[in-house]
Amino acid sequence: MPKYHLNLAHLYGNLLNTYSDVGNIIALQYYAKQMDADISVKVISIGQEFNPDEFDLALFGGGQDYEQFVVSKDLPNKKAGIKKFIDNQKPLLAICGGYQLLGQYYIGANGERIPGLSILPHYTLSQDHNRFIGNITIKNEQTGDEYHGFENHNGMTFLGKGERPLGKVISGHGNNGQDKTEGAIFKEVYCSYFHGPILTRNGEIAKHLLLAALHNKYPEEDFSKQEQLTIKPTF
C-alpha cells in the first residue's frame, strides 16, 4: 500500500475528454506511484456538486463545442467550489476548453460569447476559418524546462493581470499566435493548449502538481525524496 493518498476530481470527465485527457490521469498515477502515493479519480459532471475539500488535485479537460457549451451552462453551480479549491493553492490542470472556461469568456463556433468562470483573468477570441495545429515547443522561463506537445485550437487566448504564461513559444503558435506565450500559471493552476497529453510528455509538470498536492495535504511530512525524483525521457 502506498503511504500517501490523493483524491483527484476529473471535472466533467464524461464530457470534456476529447483530447485524450485521460492520459494526464495515467501520467499522474504513474509518477505518483514513484512518489509512494496513489490517486483515486472521481468524475464530477453536470448536475453534481463539487466539494473542494474532498479533493487534492483536479483536472479540467477540453471537449467538443457542443459539450463545452453544455458545461458552460452548468459551471455557475460549481463556481464557488472551484474558486475555493484554487484559493487554497490546490493544483488544477486545465487543458484547452477547461483553460478557456476558467477565464472570462470564449467565442463559440457560431460567434456567440460564452461566459467562463472568471476566476482567472484571461479571455479567448476566435479565429476565422483557421486553427493552430501542429507540434509545439515552449520554455518555462522560471524553471528553464522545455515542454513539448501538440496544439490544435481555434481559440486565441490573451492573458490578464496576475497570471503568467506556462512558457515562451520556441516553435508553434501558443495562446494566440501573436505574443509568444503559451498556457498560463495562476497560483497552482496550470493551463495549456497542449495535447500530447501534456503530462505524458512533460513529466516535470506532473511532478510539480503532485508535490504541490502532497505538501498541501500532508504539511508536516518530509517530501525531500519525492523532490529528487528524476523524470526519464518520454518521447
Binding site: H10, N14, L15, N17, T18, S45, G47
Partner: peptide
Amino acid sequence: FDAPANTDGLLCPKCQHI
C-alpha cells in the same frame, strides 16, 4: 448503467443530459 467516463458522445441530443 453509465458508460465509462472516457467515452465520446454521451449527451442526450434532445435535452443535454448524460
